[in-house]
Amino acid sequence: MIKLEKEVINVKRLIELIVNGMSYEIAVDTHRTLLEVLRDNLGFTGTKNGCDQGECGSCTVLIDGRAVHSCLTLAMDAQGKNIETIEGLSEGEKLHPIQQSFVDHGAIQCGFCTPGMIMSSKGLLDKNPSPTEDEIKRGISGNLCRCTGYVKIVDAIKAVEGR
């Protein structure tokens, strides 16, 4: 007889997650974070895990338009809410204006913080299309970057077309 091994012995719940406008019905353990489910179950690996404790912003996604740490969000809690990840911004080859501006301004070095940084920028610009430099800096102050010194990132956000 084949001995079956289960990854985790726990009660799974069937939930619906709406990610980038698509509905996904999946069974998850109640203790899973949204970050884990996005990356491991749904394959949205654009969202990064930098610290796993809500201290670096690499895992930032938008939930109902607000930037949050997906590593601190229970997947259960994200049910039925509108979740936006970095994968949802571009359309085919056409980058979202924020993404294009990051590319054009040299705001990307290693690119690890970039998805979270862009999601925070989107959360900011959706609410406040013409932020001041200080508002931009405050808007991305929860997103750590160790490569760029943030200068080109701030430049990129300032220059987003149609902001």
């Binding site: 809500g54 912003g57 607000r66 949050v68 601190l72 959360g123 405050r138 102050s141 929860g142 997103n143």
Partner: peptide, 9 residues
């Protein structure tokens, strides 16, 4: 409090 993400959540 914390960072924008903390204040949103």
């Amino acid at each position: 409090v914390g960072a924008p993400q903390h204040r949103n959540a």
